[in-house]
Simulated scan of single mutants.
Amino acid sequence: MCSCQQHSTANSVAASAPNGAVSFRVEDMTCGHCAGTIKQAIEGRIPGTSVTADPGSKLVSVQGGADAAAIRSAITAAGYTPSAELVG
C-alpha cells in the first residue's frame, strides 16, 4: 500500500469498466501514486496491456487480452488488494 503523504480524493470519471476491459475494484488504491504503481505493475508483468487506474472510483481497468488471474496477481504483487471483478 502507498506510504506517500499526497493522497487526494479525486473525482471519479470512470464509474464502470470500459467495454472489453477486465476490471477490479481496489479499495486500498488511495491516490495517484497508488494508481501509477498498479499501472506499472500490470503493464510490466503483462506486455500488450493498457491500464487505467482511477483512485476516485477505486477502479482498475485492463484492456489487451490479459486474463483476470494474471491481473489479480500483478495487483497483489504491487501490494494492493483487488476485490470484485467487473467485466465491461
Rank of each mutant, 00 (worst) to 15 (best):
M1K: 07
M1R: 10
M1P: 15
C2W: 01
C2V: 13
S3A: 09
S3R: 13
S3N: 14
C4S: 12
Q6I: 06
Q6R: 11
H7R: 11
H7G: 10
S8F: 09
S8I: 14
T9Y: 06
T9M: 10
T9K: 15
A10C: 12
A10D: 11
N11V: 12
N11E: 13
S12R: 07
S12K: 10
S12T: 09
V13L: 13
V13I: 14
V13T: 14
A14C: 00
A15G: 11
S16A: 14
A17N: 08
A17S: 15
N19K: 13
G20M: 11
A21L: 07
V22K: 09
V22S: 11
S23P: 09
S23K: 08
E27H: 01
E27C: 00
D28N: 15
D28P: 10
D28Q: 09
M29P: 03
M29A: 01
T30M: 09
T30F: 07
C31N: 09
C31I: 08
G32V: 02
H33Y: 04
H33M: 02
C34H: 08
A35E: 00
A35F: 00
A35K: 00
G36N: 12
G36W: 01
G36Y: 04
T37F: 01
T37I: 08
T37E: 00
T37W: 00
I38E: 01
I38S: 02
I38N: 02
K39H: 10
A41G: 10
I42F: 04
E43I: 02
E43N: 05
E43V: 06
G44E: 07
G44F: 10
R45K: 15
I46G: 07
I46L: 15
I46S: 05
P47H: 08
P47V: 01
G48E: 07
T49L: 05
S50N: 13
S50R: 15
V51S: 07
T52C: 00
T52K: 13
D54K: 02
G56L: 08
S57Y: 00
S57F: 03
K58A: 01
K58D: 03
L59Y: 05
V60N: 05
V60I: 15
V60R: 04
Q63I: 13
G64S: 07
G64D: 04
G64M: 08
G64P: 09
A66R: 05
D67H: 08
D67V: 09
A69M: 10
A69T: 15
A70E: 11
I71N: 03
S73V: 03
A74R: 01
A74F: 04
I75M: 03
I75W: 03
T76K: 12
T76A: 13
T76V: 12
T76Y: 02
A77T: 10
A78Y: 06
G79C: 09
G79R: 08
G79N: 10
T81W: 01
P82M: 07
S83L: 06
S83N: 07
S83V: 14
A84E: 14
A84V: 12
L86G: 04
L86S: 11
V87C: 01
V87H: 13
G88N: 12
G88C: 05
